[in-house]
Design a protein around this nucleic acid. Structure first.
Lengths: 321, 321
DNA sequence: GAGCAGTAGTTAATCGATTACACATGTATC
DNA sequence: GATACATGTGTAATCGATTAACTACTGCTC
C-alpha cells in the first residue's frame, strides 16, 4: 500500500479512501491511485483490513458431515446466499464428532468470523453457550441443542412422518423397523419420537449414527427380527440399509416396504423408486444464512421451521394405494 | 492480550512467549500467565498473529462443484491431510464457472492462504499464471491447464478406458455413445480422446458440462441416434443419463450397455449394478495436500499420477463375459 | 570484587490496513 | 480584507499479535 501511495504521489490514507469508495478524493487523484494499483498489481491484505475494522465479511459454517449430500446441499445454499450479500463462507467438517466440532468452532472464532452457522453434532448446549458468551452471532441449522437461546432453522418432518406411519399401519404392517439417528441429536430423537408415537407399539427402533455402515447393521438386525418395513432416518443410513436389503436378495416392496428421510437424486432411479421424505435443503441453507446476516445486522430473526414432504414413489407397495 | 499481561503482572512479550512455547519463561511465570488466560477466557486473535507472522496455517481449496460427490470426497481427504499437519482448509465452490473460480482464488489470496489447491474449471492458464506470479504455492488437482508449471495431482484413466472400449467393441457394439466432459477441461478432453481413439470410428461423442441435466440431454440425443452403449464421463452426467434411460423404459444391459467414469456408493445398488471406472479420490486429495505442504515447505514435489480402475458390475452385459 | 555468562523479562518496532483529527487551500459572506 | 465554511489530503494512532534488542539480575570464576 505504501508503494502504491508513493507511486501515485499521495498518502496511504488517500489510497485507502479510493479503495473504500470513501467520500473525498478528486477524480483526478482517484485516477492516479487506480493507475498505480493497476501497475503494481496491488491487492489489499484482507487480514490487515479485518484486524483494523473487526469485520471479516466471513461466515463460519460447521456441518456434521461433508460427505453427506444433505449437508453438501445446505452448504451450497448457504454459500450462495452469503455471497449475494458480499460474504464469504468458511466450511468446517465436524465428521459427526463433537470434539472435532468444538475444535472447528474455536478455530473459526479465533479467525474472527462475523457469525457462525452450526449443525450441532450433539444436543449438548455447552459449545453453543461458549459461542454466545463470546458474543458471536450464532444460528443453529438442521439440529438444535437443549435450551438453545439462538435462532434455529430446521425442517419439520412430523406431518410427513405421521402420514407415512398411517400408511404403513393401514397396509397391515405390524413389525416396522426404524433405523433411527443418534438419540443425542435433536433430529435423531424428534423424528423417532414422532414415528414411534404414530406407530403405537408396532415400531422396532435401532439407533445408528447417521452413517452408511450403521444403516446396514441396523437393517440387518431389524430384518433378522422379522421387520416387513424399514424406515431409515437419513439418506446415508438409507444407503446402507438398501445395501443390506439387496445383499439378502429381498425385493422391495414385495418382501419389504422401504422409505428414507432425505431425498437424493438417485432414489428415483432405483427399482422401484424409493419413497422419501424430502427436506427443503436449499431453503434451509438460504434461510439460515439470512437469519445469521440479520443477527449480524443487529436484528433478532425468528426461528424458521420449514416443512418436509412425503414423496410417494412406490417402495411402500400397497401402503401407497 | 494486554489484559492478560496485566492480570499476570508481566509484559505482553512474555504472554506471547508462553503462548508459543518459546524459550524463556520460568515455570512459575508460565503458570501465572496460563492462569490469567484461563480466568479471562482469552483467545489469541488469529488475524493479528497471521498479519505479523505472514503465515495463516490455512490452505485454500477451490473445487469445481461442491455438489459433485467426487469433489466432496476430495475436499474431505484434503482436509484430513491438512489437519493432521496443523493446517486448516478453506473451501471455495466455483460451480464450474471460470469467473466464480477467479473470484474465489483472489479472495483466498487476499486472505493470505499459505497455499492453494485448484481444480481448474477450464484449461485456460491465465489464472494459474496470476497465482504463480503472486508467488503463492499452487497445486492443481484432478484437472490441469495448458502449459502448467506447477505440480499436478490426477488420476489416469487411460488403461481403464481402453479396457472398457475393447470390451464393448469385442461384444459387437458399433454405435457407442460417449457423454463427454467439456472440451475445455483437461479431464474432459483426455478421457474422450483416449476413448474415441480406442473405439476407432464407433464412437459418437456429445459434450456435456459435468452436470446432471447435460447428461440427460446428451443421453437423449445419443439414444435417438441409435446408440447401443452409453458411457458417461463423470458421475453427475451418469446420473442424468441413467434417468433418461429409465424414462425411456430401456433395460440395462439388455437394451443398452452402460458405464460411468467415477464410482459412487449407490451405483452397486442399481439393478443391474453399474460398471464404473473408479478414481482413488481419497488418495488424490491426500496426495494433493501433501504436495502443497511440500511446496510451502520449500521442496519441489513431483507430479502425481494415480490409476483409475475399471470395476465390472454387470451393466455392460455380454461385454463383461 | 571485577568480569563474564546466562537467564528472565521489558521495551518498542513491526505487519498492512483504517480513520479521527489536523492542515492547507479555495470560495462565499459581510 | 477578515471570517467562516467546505473540500481534499496528510499525519499519526490504532487494531492485536511477534520478536529483535536491550536491561536487570543472579551466579560463577579467577
Amino acid at each position: 500500500m505504501k508503494d502504491v501511495a508513493q507511486h501515485a504521489g499521495v498518502s496511504t490514507a488517500t489510497v485507502s479512501r479510493v479503495l473504500n469508495g470513501h467520500a473525498a478524493p478528486t477524480p483526478e487523484t482517484r485516477e492516479r491511485v487506480l493507475a498505480a494499483i493497476e501497475e503494481l498489481g496491488y491487492r489489499p491484505n484482507a487480514l490487515a483490513r479485518s484486524l483494523r475494522t473487526t469485520s471479516t465479511q466471513t461466515l463460519g459454517l460447521v456441518i456434521s458431515d461433508l460427505l453427506n449430500p444433505f449437508f453438501a446441499e445446505i452448504a451450497r445454499a448457504v454459500e450462495d446466499e452469503a455471497r449475494s450479500h458480499g460474504y464469504c463462507v468458511v466450511i468446517g467438517n465436524a465428521d459427526e464428532s463433537a470434539e472435532q466440532e468444538a475444535t472447528y468452532v474455536r478455530t473459526l472464532l479465533d479467525r474472527r468470523v462475523d457469525g457462525l452457522l452450526l449443525c450441532p453434532a450433539t444436543d449438548d448446549p455447552s459449545l453453543v453457550r461458549e459461542v454466545s458468551a463470546g458474543g458471536v452471532p450464532l444460528v443453529l441449522l438442521d439440529r438444535t441443542v437443549r435450551g438453545a437461546t439462538c435462532p434455529v432453522v430446521r425442517a419439520d418432518g412430523s406431518e410427513a412422518l405421521t402420514a407415512l406411519a398411517r400408511r404403513l399401519v393401514g397396509a397391515g404392517h405390524t413389525r416396522i423397523g426404524v433405523i433411527a439417528g443418534p438419540p443425542n441429536t435433536s433430529t435423531g430423537r424428534e423424528r423417532t419420537d414422532v414415528l414411534t408415537g404414530s406407530l403405537g407399539g408396532l415400531a422396532q427402533v435401532v439407533h445408528g449414527d447417521f452413517r452408511q455402515e450403521s444403516g446396514s447393521q441396523a437393517a440387518a438386525r431389524l430384518l433378522d427380527d422379522g421387520a416387513t418395513a424399514l424406515i431409515a432416518m437419513d439418506n446415508l443410513m438409507g444407503l446402507g440399509a438398501l445395501g443390506e436389503v439387496r445383499a439378502r436378495g429381498l425385493q422391495i416392496p414385495h418382501d419389504i416396504a422401504f422409505a428414507v428421510f432425505d431425498d437424493q437424486p438417485w432414489f428415483p432411479l432405483l427399482d422401484p423408486p424409493i419413497t422419501v421424505i424430502a427436506q427443503p435443503t436449499v431453503e434451509m441453507g438460504r434461510a439460515a444464512a439470512r437469519s445469521l446476516l440479520a443477527l449480524i445486522d443487529g436484528r433478532q430473526p425468528d426461528d424458521v421451521r420449514l416443512t418436509a414432504k412425503l414423496v410417494l414413489r412406490g417402495s411402500l407397495g400397497e401402503a401407497e394405494l
